[in-house]
Design a protein around this nucleic acid. Structure first.
Lengths: 192, 192
DNA sequence: AACGGTACCGGACTATTCCTCCGGCTGGCA
DNA sequence: TGCCAGCCGGAGGAATAGTCCGGTACCGTT
């Protein structure tokens, strides 16, 4: 990549980060390019879709999350490790007003090639942590890892506009953890 | 309301229902008015905001949900009643590609005056069912009714674009119910 | 250091959608 | 039948997404 192209790339990501914080997911792309001091054509060259730009902004954060998860894979208490990592994932999903949640969710949907390898790694780590917790006997429910990660993203979405968002998110995640710990009860479902 | 005004109102709601099913929440309003055979000014006269139109579409369905809940308040098994009603609420939240979930969620956020009395009734019924299940001893967690309803909406949002959406939603709701039934464990949370 | 080609940049332009405004007309009532 | 409040229509301004191509700057080679 040429030196000028790299400069513009970095300026765009930086301004996108700011704009997403300020306006949320739907920040006008033209505004971002304007602030970065480049034309909109340049923005679309580097980031054909909005999602591409979003992922560039989140890349670093996701890498941290993956590293944290890998470290926790050797932690003493498998259940606490899972809980800790899910909380970190929730914090991640809450950044930029639920932006990360939207990406996480769309990445989990189809085997979307556009949804970068970062999310694949994240899913892998989450699945490993969940499997380990299950083997240790702390998690009884036969939950699908994708379900659990989706729930985390869903919680982030649900509280994104609430005034006391993070408090509420915390309670909801506790509810989810409870569901994981409890033995699976299929009888709780009505037979319609 | 004048006869012509009423006719147009009804045509708009009908076409909005179709358009929301087809395009999702973001269906172009101009397209709706075009299909209804009225001008866009007329649409905006009846429904100043998109939310107003959405609520008009959902009104009947919400009323049914409230009635179902009221009936279930006298059911034998309080826990099963709650479970049954939450499943109905989930089905409601899934309609029109997660549109209902978005409305439900925003209605629960702040004491939003714009969010109609419909949703207030829904919240009331849900809270009553939850309280009754708790008194019966079946629900141990001290969950906030708003949290529970938000989770239902969140699940609907999370699966809205997934191919096997309703299956996944089902599993996730079971997870939630498990969390409600389990005794509350504050120890599942790491002390950071 | 000069040069040529590669590929990047700019920004005007089209398309889409939201929403407003106001002249003209129509339905309901006396 | 006649009046008029209030409704209707549709043009149009504003914001945003995304495209296109002429001009230009960078990089590698000589």
């Amino acid at each position: 990549m040429r030196a000028d192209a790299r400069r513009n790339y970095e300026k765009l990501v930086e301004q996108a980060r700011i704009a997403f914080t300020e306006f949320g997911v739907d920040a006008p792309l033209d505004e971002i390019s304007r602030r970065a001091g480049v034309a909109s054509g340049t923005l679309y060259r580097h980031f054909p879709t909005r999602l591409d730009l979003i992922e560039a902004v989140l890349a670093g954060q996701i890498a941290e999350l993956v590293n944290l998860g890998r470290g926790l894979l050797t932690a003493e208490d498998a259940s606490a490790a899972l809980s800790r990592w899910l909380r970190a994932a929730l914090a991640h999903a809450l950044t930029y007003r639920g932006l990360a949640a939207a990406v996480m969710n769309s990445a989990l949907d189809q085997d979307n090639d556009r949804a970068s390898t970062w999310h694949a790694q994240m899913f892998e780590v989450g699945a490993a942590l969940l499997a380990r917790a299950r083997r240790s006997g702390a998690v009884g429910a036969d939950a699908d890892p994708a379900d659990v990660l989706k729930m985390v993203g869903a919680i982030a979405w649900a509280v994104q506009d609430a005034p006391d968002g993070s408090t509420q998110a915390d309670r909801m995640l506790t509810l989810l953890m409870n569901g994981l710990h409890a033995p699976h009860r299929s009888d709780s479902r009505p037979e319609e």
